[in-house]
């Protein structure tokens, strides 16, 4: 039954996206996707089973859904029309943070299981790390993009920023590979360090990019979050998370490129263009 619900959910996402790309049906497409999402959430709450056990902590889940739902609904209803892109960015960041938190909890589970004598599945650990890093980068980047759009954060560039960013990314990846390959006793600390570095990277990734290019960056971060959500899909063998996430990941990437084209820029130009020229970086 739950598989059927997930299948329906995946189909509504595809149909919804398709309808969203046509002016005549866009609004209905949004409603279709929303309906599919509601179905998938309700199905998960009431029907999900793992090793024959239903979910627990219904009180917490309901409270979380209520709090998030009310805040989300009200802030989305009240936001001014001109402030909508920054709102989208903020919501995108929430999704990224959600994906990162899932990874944190799953990592915690794995470490607990490991100290109880269960072998760690390296590939699963890889997915946990991918979800953590992508989610955290997306969260930090989106919050910065949000701050930039409402004018609270200025463009900041400094010499060698490009090299700084790349080395930051390299350190993160090397650390992750190290933690995944070996199982050192300091895993927890390293894990926290990687989380921290991912957040820092997200900040520095978006900081130098000009305000006018923000929609492109938000779209890019949007597809990042999609991939982070898909990592969750792999983790729980959950088809609707996987299709939804990957669909947004690929559609988001194409959309990013289309948006660049509409502005007569290339993606490379948007992302690293700010390092040369007037700002005198790099």
């Amino acid at each position: 039954m739950l598989s059927l619900i997930y299948l329906t959910g995946s189909v509504t996402f595809i149909v919804g996206l398709k309808m969203l790309s046509n002016p005549a049906t866009a609004r209905r497409g949004n409603a279709v996707a929303a309906a599919g999402m509601t179905l998938a959430i309700l199905g998960t709450i009431f029907l999900y089973e793992h090793n024959g056990r239903h979910l627990r902590n219904y009180g917490w889940i309901t409270a979380g859904l209520l709090i998030g739902g009310v805040i989300g609904f009200l802030s989305a209803k009240r936001v001014k029309m001109t402030a909508m892109p920054e709102m989208v960015s903020l919501f995108n960041g929430m999704g990224g943070a959600c994906a990162a938190l899932i990874s944190v909890v799953e990592f915690n589970h794995m470490i607990r299981a490991f100290s109880g004598g269960v072998e760690i599945d390296h590939l699963q650990l890889l997915i946990v790390f991918a979800g953590l890093i992508i989610g955290a980068v997306s969260f930090a980047g989106s919050v910065i993009a949000w701050g930039k759009l409402n004018g609270n954060i200025k463009d900041i560039t400094f010499g060698g920023q490009h090299i700084f960013n790349i080395s930051l990314l390299a350190v993160m990846l090397i650390l992750s590979v190290y933690v995944i390959a070996a199982q050192p006793p300091f895993t927890g600390i390293l894990f926290a360090l990687i989380l921290l570095l991912s957040l820092v990277y997200g900040v520095f990734f978006v900081l130098p990019i000009g305000g006018a290019d923000m929609p492109v960056v938000i779209s890019l971060l949007n597809s990042f979050t999609g991939v982070a959500a898909a990592c969750g899909g792999f983790l729980y063998n959950n088809p609707v998370m996987l299709t939804g996430g990957i669909l947004v990941g690929s559609a988001g990437s194409i959309l990013t490129i289309l948006m660049c084209k509409a502005m007569n820029r290339s993606l490379k130009n948007v992302l690293i263009g700010s390092f040369g020229g007037t700002h005198g970086g790099g």
């Binding site: 989208v88 999704g95 779209s219 949007n222 597809s223 947004v248 559609a251």
Partner: peptide, 10 residues
């Protein structure tokens, strides 16, 4: 569309 995709990766 970006906003819709944003909601879907929810």
């Amino acid at each position: 569309l970006m906003s819709g995709a944003n909601a879907i990766h929810g």
